[in-house]
Simulated assay, not measured.
Amino acid sequence: MFVRAYLRASTIEQDASRARAALEQFAASHDRVIAAEYLENASGARVDRPELLRLLKDARKGDVLLVESIDRLSRLPVEDWQRLKAAIDAKGLRIVALDLPTSHQGISDTRGDEFTNRMLGAINSMLVEMMAAIARKDYEQRRERQAQGIDKAKAEGKYKGRPVDADLHKRITELLKAGLGIRATARHADCSTTTVLRIRDAIT
């Protein structure tokens, strides 16, 4: 059994590796080790995530796709989720999520009779679908609340957007023009790579 751990955070500022210890402890509790790790900072609402696509390319039938929770795997609209789920199923991957106990049988050595296995498999599949739908709904509600908050602030004349840091903008521009890469520029300017990319796109 080959266990592939997928760890995702939404932005560069967040730590995608945060759940590593919990995933390793879970695998060890089932006498398994994580054989491959796929780590990335990308929105779960995007289907074109390089590390997730690499995991699917590497996967073989019977492998375990280990995640902290289903929302680390997907916050996708239903059509995109169905395509992703179909790709996972086509590869013969078994989704195991720490917060979904019915999925834990996928990493366990225990095997019941065929009827019990099929019943547990059907229940787990239903719960995975439900949690994926909840994850998407949560994403949409947070985006809606954010937009409403911005609209209200604008109506009250309180929303100015993010203030421009002229000194930081100048520093990043100088570093980029000097030929430094995105990560090196972020390190020297003491900012996120997202900020560097935004400024780079504005000046090109």
Results as ranks from 00 to 15, higher is better:
24 E>M: 07
17 S>D: 13
117 N>K: 08
90 A>E: 14
16 A>W: 09
80 D>R: 05
188 H>N: 09
169 H>W: 02
22 A>E: 15
75 R>V: 03
120 L>A: 13
57 K>Y: 00
58 D>M: 04
59 A>D: 08
149 G>C: 13
133 A>T: 14
128 V>Y: 00
56 L>M: 06
53 L>E: 13
82 Q>W: 03
135 A>N: 00
71 D>W: 04
16 A>D: 06
70 I>M: 04
81 W>G: 01
74 S>I: 03
125 S>W: 06
11 T>G: 04
110 T>C: 08
39 L>N: 01
42 A>F: 02
94 R>Q: 15
183 R>E: 10
1 M>I: 14
30 H>V: 00
120 L>V: 14
20 R>A: 15
95 I>W: 12
139 Y>P: 04
22 A>Y: 05
61 K>E: 08
30 H>K: 15
203 I>Y: 07
111 R>E: 12
66 L>Y: 01
162 R>W: 02
96 V>D: 15
13 E>N: 10
61 K>Y: 12
7 L>Q: 11
176 L>S: 05
148 Q>E: 14
189 A>Y: 00
110 T>M: 14
141 Q>R: 12
45 A>Q: 05
152 K>M: 12
23 L>N: 05
170 K>Q: 15
63 D>I: 10
182 I>H: 02
201 D>K: 13
173 T>D: 05
172 I>G: 07
32 R>G: 01
193 T>A: 02
21 A>S: 14
50 P>T: 08
167 D>S: 07
36 A>L: 05
142 R>C: 07
78 V>G: 06
195 T>G: 01
114 E>K: 12
50 P>I: 09
188 H>D: 08
78 V>P: 07
68 E>N: 04
149 G>L: 10
55 L>W: 01
4 R>L: 15
188 H>E: 15
140 E>P: 01
47 V>K: 02
100 L>H: 11
37 E>G: 01
139 Y>V: 03
135 A>L: 06
175 L>R: 06
159 Y>E: 07
174 E>S: 11
2 F>C: 15
139 Y>F: 11
80 D>T: 08
199 I>R: 00
149 G>W: 11
200 R>Q: 12
113 D>W: 09
17 S>H: 11
26 F>V: 09
194 T>H: 03
89 D>Q: 13
116 T>G: 09
46 R>T: 06
41 N>A: 06
69 S>Y: 09
21 A>F: 12
146 Q>S: 11
65 L>S: 04
152 K>C: 06
148 Q>D: 15
24 E>Y: 01
113 D>I: 07
151 D>V: 00
57 K>Q: 10
2 F>Q: 15
34 I>D: 05
